[in-house]
Write a protein that binds this DNA or RNA. Structure first.
Lengths: 199, 199
DNA sequence: CGTCTATTTGAATGTACTCAAAAGCGGTGG
DNA sequence: CCACCGCTTTTGAGTACATTCAAATAGACG
C-alpha cells in the first residue's frame, strides 16, 4: 500500500459528495498529512485543545468522555472513512470535552484548523460539504439521544448490533458497554438474558 | 411592534455573526416570512417533512420526540433568537424525527429549503454561519449526552436550573421533566428531596 | 363555583449499579 | 508445551434510583 493510496481514500470520499477539479485535489492533498497512530495512542486528550481533525484510512479509534467518577462514555467508534475530532475544540481552540484514542494501529490523514480554514477559502465547495456532514452527525446524535431517553439498555444493544452487525468482532465487550452507557457486568447479564430467550 | 422590527431581530442576529451589505439584508428579508403560531400550534409534526426552519422572535416552542409508548422527550425549548427545525428532515425532505409545537403565542420568521438554498447562493457568508451554528448545536448536544450518560436526574436538574435560572417560570414542571428524561412524579420527588436538604 | 389539568404523595416494582469473587482467555517466558 | 500473569467476562447478592399504578391535593381558567 503506497502513501498515494491513502490520499485516494480521502479524495474518493470528497468526490462522492462534491465536484473537484484536479487543482482542488492537489490543494486537498497538500493540506492533509498522513500519520500513524499506534495502538492506545491518543490524537487528543480531554481537557486539551483538539489541534487536529483526522480522516481514518485504516484501523479504529474511540471518542469518549471521562466523567468525574472516572467512568468512560464512548461517543462513537471511528472506522475507515470516519472523521475523528472534537468539533467545538477544533474550531474554537478551547479544551476538548472528550479524548480520541486508537483501538489498534490506525492510519489517518490529519489537518489543523488553520489549514482547514485556508482550504475552505481555496475550495469553497468544502465549506458546504462539511456543513452537510455536521448536519448529518447532529441528526444521528439526536436519534441516539432519543433512543437513550426512551428505551432501556436492551433496546440500545439490539439497535446497535442491527446497525453494526460486526461491531462485536471489532471491539471488546466492555467498550460496547461504555458506548451503550451501561457497565460491562450489565451487558453480560443482558446478553445472557437475550440468549436464554432464544432457546 | 411593527412588522419591520421582527426582521430587525433576525438581521441583528446575523450581523453579530457575519458582515452583511444592505443588499444582503434585502435578500434576507425577502427570503424569510413572518408568521404567528398560536398556543399549541405545530410548525411541523414527527413523521411529516419539516418544510420550514424558523427563527423565534417572541414566545417559545418545544421540539420533542414521541416514543412508541407515547412518552414525549423534549430535545430543547426554543425561545427568542433560537432556531426551530429538524435539520435532517429540512435538508433531505425526509420525515422528521420530532415535532415542533408552540408553548404560547409565538412570532417566528420562516424559510423553506429552496429559499434557504437560494439565499446561500446569493449571500455565501450565510453558508459559513450556519455551519458554525450547526457545529455549536452539535457540541451542546454532545455535552448534554455525556451529562445524561454520566449522571443521575438530580445532576441534570441542577445543571438545567443553573444554566437557565428562569426556566421554571417559563415552562410547566412536567415539560421540564420531559426535558430531563424523567417522569413528572420523579421530578416532584427530586425537588422535595432537594428542598428538604436545604432546611 | 366547578371542571380540567398539574402536582404531590404513597406503595410496590424493575432496571441497572455496587461490591465481590470466580471463571475464561490470551499472550509471555521458562 | 505448559504454567503463569493480566485482562476480560461472567455470576452472585444486595442496593439505589426512577418507574408504575393509584389516589389525593392544588391550581388555573372559564
Amino acid at each position: 500500500m503506497e502513501m498515494e493510496s491513502y490520499y485516494s481514500d480521502l479524495i474518493r470520499y470528497f468526490s462522492e459528495r462534491i465536484i473537484l477539479s484536479d487543482s482542488d485535489i492537489k490543494l486537498i492533498i497538500s493540506a492533509y498529512e498522513f500519520r500513524v497512530l499506534k495502538k492506545k495512542e491518543f490524537l487528543f486528550h480531554q481537557g486539551e485543545v483538539c489541534r487536529y481533525e483526522a480522516f481514518v484510512i485504516k484501523g479504529a479509534c474511540k471518542l469518549y468522555y471521562s466523567d468525574l467518577k472516572g467512568a468512560d462514555h464512548i461517543l462513537y467508534f471511528a472506522f475507515k472513512d470516519w472523521w475523528v475530532g472534537d468539533v467545538a475544540s477544533f474550531s474554537t481552540q478551547e479544551p476538548a470535552a472528550m479524548s480520541a484514542q486508537a483501538l489498534e494501529e490506525t492510519y489517518i490523514l490529519t489537518v489543523n484548523a488553520q489549514r482547514k480554514e485556508a482550504l475552505f477559502a481555496q475550495v469553497p465547495q468544502l465549506e458546504r460539504m462539511f456543513r452537510v456532514i455536521t448536519q448529518r452527525t447532529l441528526s444521528v446524535l439526536q436519534k441516539r439521544f432519543f433512543l437513550t431517553m426512551s428505551g432501556g439498555a436492551r433496546e440500545r444493544y439490539l439497535q446497535l448490533i442491527e446497525r453494526y452487525p460486526t461491531i462485536e468482532q471489532l471491539v471488546p465487550q466492555y467498550q460496547i458497554a461504555s458506548y451503550l452507557g451501561i457497565l460491562p457486568e450489565s451487558l453480560s447479564r443482558l446478553k445472557k438474558q437475550l440468549y436464554e430467550q432464544t432457546i
